[in-house]
Amino acid sequence: MRASRTRTAGVIAVAGVSSVLLAACGSSSSSSTVAASSGTGSAAAASCNGKKIAFVMGAESDPFFQAMKVGATDETAKQGATLIWQGDPKEYSPATQIPVVDQVLAQQPDALVLIPTDPDALQAEVTKAVAANVVVANVDTHVTDLSQVLTFITGDNADGGAKAADAIATAIGYKAGTKYKVVVGLSSETATTNVARLEGFKKAIADKYAGVEIVDVAYSQSKPEVANTNVNNWLTKYPDLNGIFAIDGTNGQGAAAALQAKGLTGKIALVGYDAYPDNVKLIKTGVFTALVAQDPATEARQAVDAVCTKLSGGDVSGIKHEVVIPNVVLDKNSSDADLQKYTYVA
């Protein structure tokens, strides 16, 4: 009995210690403070010396935000500021984001760059920050009332969808009067990025490529194997399929695997979204016809730049209230420099 009690206590102790270790592991990746290295070559450009800039993003697990972190880290170091990078490890939701913003504001940053996970739910946090004399910028998404926000910098999802339509039309050699069949793989019926990309795609097809018919759409719930099942069955159902628009990285992986396993690489146009490193490699091998890439690093750089100008009392007349950074289409004709530049670096 005694032995078993000791053993039980041991198990609990081990479980406790390992969970603390895990938590430490997790928190080190979901938040970090990057101190400025003054005295580097770029110190000349420093206009933000000693300032604290907080970034609260959507979900650490998304490579999109990893790429954004690279831009934010670079630019804050260049400006001589300290970066506080925070966000939920995996959940893109206001319920998890609001406490994170509160915690960050308690550290009294000079500026807050916020990627609000919900326009209304995060409004109060922005109001609170502004009342505490914190300069606020929005990146990627924005709160309802932009009047208190210094600048809002975003990629354009509808434009990305339209560019995907152009890329498919080019790949299939679109000619007016000919009929073509395409399918669209999505992750969710409600995610705003999915909806905007699909709308942009549909609009471009309606406006410019009337011969293209979207014969099916399906949802993967962010699981690549489900995306794979959808595409496998479409390939059986539509032997004359011309193109696939995979609306995000997960759908891209599932569709790419389906085409490779059925030996249809290069025969069916596959346009994906988001420049994950492994997907960019598949452009070279011809699996992906094209990838629509956003530029999260630039979004972050411009946001840091704008808040630094404001914080250092510089000329703010040059800061635009809304900035849309266009998407880039990567394909086999893209230069190596471009491929490297737009690949999401984690």
């Binding site: 997790g26 979900a59 697990s61 998304d62 997960t250």
Partner: peptide
């Protein structure tokens, strides 16, 4: 959770 932390959300291919 560990899968997400280790991969940072991206699939591991190559």
């Amino acid at each position: 959770g560990l899968s997400l932390v280790l991969t940072k959300g991206a699939p591991i291919m190559s």
